[in-house]
Amino acid sequence: MASAPPVFDDDMDPSHLAELDFGTAFAAPTDCPDCGSSRLTAQDAGDRTDFSCDDCRAEWAFRLGRIVRVTAGHAVPEPR
């Protein structure tokens, strides 16, 4: 199929571009951020859903578009 005539210059202000990649925004975590394992399992964590890595046992929570480790047993130092 012939390409359509361009309506935008290549050097158009990039702030005028919106990438509507909802597929990425709505995707569930699939890989452990620590060890990279794909064996990440959703689990009921009381009032939210956490993701547990079957390999390294790290647990993760999703919060406002960010992911955070919630496993208590990981790298917890002694109280100061």
Binding site: M12, A18, E19, L20, D21, T24, T30
Partner: peptide, 12 residues
């Protein structure tokens, strides 16, 4: 954290 980003529609 995702190595891939799904290409969605783009509005210019």
């Amino acid at each position: 954290l995702r190595e891939w980003r799904e290409r969605g529609p783009r509005v210019n």
